[in-house]
């Protein structure tokens, strides 16, 4: 039973950042801009917020520190995503190229700054994890469910689930959501009824940047005690989760749990007795999430429901 608890808790640590970042992907793509720079935005968000936690060590700790760090991660991601928005909306640049540039920039920048400001040119930023909630009061005592979701938890888990609820409401129940989706499906039609396509697309990209930045922090905090300018390709996995989730928030949730479970198997196989005795190389387990992604994509891409106008720069003059 303890192992089952551990697996579920681990799955949450891996799934929640995927969920948050993939939801970011949903917002930008629903608005018509593709964003393969999610990985870079995660790195930037994680970098500034972990650096903040590192600097605040001793003077602050616990949930208040984490909440401020979250705020910093979100703002960093938003600011960084403006570069992508400017290139792909104003400059009508190839969005894949712009995204690739940002993906290259982020880890180089994180390593450069870390080595310039830290003693002895160390590139890893260490932090002390004071954020784990051993047991949520009351809820943690519920049999089974308490063990799965309310022990050894992080506040970020609940924030992630809250973001899911808010995303569903914003996308499907507000004027903004309807307009955003219109800009991703048929921007000319949206324009003809007076919607500012450029503004809406900016909004989509910046929301994705904020969520990706947050996702970076949420990924690093429970799974490590240092940040080494990488989020292990999570931004790309999040893109796959988004496609697997067919650009719909609730499906994205299931996709994120599926990948989170795969990732848990990859990282925790040594404590799962059945898998440990198989004697398979650790490298095979590390491949599992990526192979699973490919297989899932192979089955789910044929009937893709991607927004029609995604990755096409909007030009008022074109027909």
């Amino acid at each position: 039973m303890d192992i089952l608890f551990l697996v579920v808790q681990q799955t949450m640590f891996f799934s929640i950042p995927l969920l948050i970042v993939a939801l970011g992907g949903v917002f930008t793509e629903r608005g018509g801009v593709t964003n393969i720079a999610l990985d870079g935005m995660m790195i930037m968000g994680a970098f500034t917020s972990i650096l903040f936690i590192n600097k605040m060590h001793g003077s602050m700790s616990g949930q208040s520190l984490l909440l401020i760090a979250i705020l910093i991660a979100v703002v960093t991601g938003m600011v960084f995503s403006l570069l992508h928005a400017y290139a792909s909306i104003n400059m009508k640049a190839d969005q894949i190229i712009s995204g690739t540039a940002l993906n290259m920039f982020a880890p180089a920048f994180a390593i450069y700054v870390a080595r310039m400001i830290q003693a002895n040119g160390v590139q890893q930023i260490t932090f002390v994890n004071t954020f784990r909630i051993p047991k949520v009061p009351l809820l943690g005592d519920i049999p089974l469910i308490g063990g799965f979701f309310f022990r050894n938890a992080y506040i970020t888990t609940y924030i992630g689930l809250a973001i899911l609820v808010v995303s569903v409401i914003v996308l499907y129940r507000t004027r903004f959501g309807l307009r955003l989706r219109a800009c991703g499906e048929h921007p000319h039609a949206a324009d003809s009824v007076g919607i500012n396509v450029y503004k809406m697309r900016y909004a989509g990209v910046v929301i994705s940047g904020g969520l990706a930045g947050l996702g970076g922090l949420v990924f690093v905090v429970p799974t490590s005690t240092q940040f080494n300018a990488t989020v292990s390709g999570y931004g790309f996995l999040a893109l796959a989760v988004m496609i697997f989730g067919q650009w719909k928030p609730m499906r994205v949730l299931f996709a994120a749990f599926f990948f989170g479970l795969m990732k848990t198997v990859a990282s925790a196989y040594s404590v799962i007795p059945v898998l440990n005795t198989l004697g398979i190389s650790s490298d095979v387990f590390k491949m599992v999430p990526f192979i699973a992604t490919l297989i899932v994509l192979a089955f789910s891409s044929k009937t893709s429901q991607a927004p029609r106008a995604v990755a096409i720069p909007y030009d008022k003059g074109s027909r």
Partner: peptide, 8 residues
């Protein structure tokens, strides 16, 4: 299978 080559 129409899988986008960037992801795959």
């Amino acid at each position: 299978l129409n899988v986008h080559e960037v992801i795959s």
